[in-house]
Design a protein around this nucleic acid. Structure first.
Lengths: 154, 154
DNA sequence: TTAACATAGTTGCATATGCAACTATGTTAA
DNA sequence: TTAACATAGTTGCATATGCAACTATGTTAA
């Protein structure tokens, strides 16, 4: 019985590549914002983007769901963003358990400033990658997510 | 002048896909370990794997470099692992600034237990992905890392 | 020699994150 | 009605992480 059949191939496996690349990407975005004197993280930016498209606000729990984030984690992310005056918690009138998260004017302003920076960053990240490669990349990502969710149920 | 040309396509972009998938993967691995009553994170596991292949130990800074991690971050990762008796800091005799990080017997034991679990997890994650898709996926990842590193210098 | 510089690692301060247990409020079935 | 259950959000405790400033030690050039 040989258990260690394939672990030698670990480095050519999705797991370490995905982790490393994702971390490098976060650092890259963080660096870009830092160089432009913008105090915001990639995670906050994504929330800001979602909220900028929903002027009525989004229930906190729903926002957690959309961003695939634990509700405890979202609570704290919103805490930081609220502290920095990017978003506001508005209690729902229909259900007092719920909070509507809304982007502030200050948040919208910051988001508008970041738009061209983010577009340029995405272009830089996706440089030299063909449309075909991109399509397969997204397809593989989708399959991975499916695999992760299927197995999660067991 | 239209600045917001492409931000509407953000969701079909590498950036959010990579972030989300990576997070889901970390949660998946964390869940697998949890269900097997193994107290270790994906990050710790990778360090354990690297150390298990280097019985002479690795200089702390080098380990940070290999895992593409900030040296401050590595310091704390090693703190946790040392607390849990998975690794040990051994001061270098040649250069007293340096620490050699070595896996402990307890760490080796835990690593051996996790091997089959990790192999099964990787198989689950890579299920339904063809060899061709895998090759392109790795190629794209490699290109992204190159893009990130090139732009980092500016 | 020794001052200037380089390298290794740690610490303060900060964000992001998850699990489990909790509070508060709303809903539903007997 | 009201007890049991469901849902929304927060808090305690934990890990992982980065930047900047720091200490300690080693190296190098005048």
């Amino acid at each position: 019985m040989e258990i260690d059949i394939k672990l030698s191939d670990f480095n050519e496996t999705i797991l370490p590549w995905l982790g490393k690349t994702s971390k490098l990407m976060n650092m890259f975005i963080s660096d870009v914002f830092h160089k432009n004197n913008i105090q915001i993280t990639k995670q906050q930016w994504i929330v800001l983007k979602i909220l900028s498209e929903k002027s009525d606000g989004i229930i906190q729990n729903e926002l957690a769901c959309i961003t695939e984030r634990n509700k405890a984690s979202l609570t704290r992310l919103i805490n930081v963003m609220e502290k920095n005056n990017l978003v506001a918690r508005v209690p729902s009138k229909l259900d007092s358990r719920k909070n509507l998260i809304k982007i502030t004017h200050s948040g919208e302003h910051l988001f508008n400033i970041t738009k061209p920076i983010m577009i340029a960053s995405i272009k830089a990240i996706e440089n030299n990658i063909s449309v075909d490669e991109m399509n397969i990349f997204l397809k593989v990502m989708s399959k991975i997510q499916t695999n992760l969710k299927i197995n999660q149920l067991n």
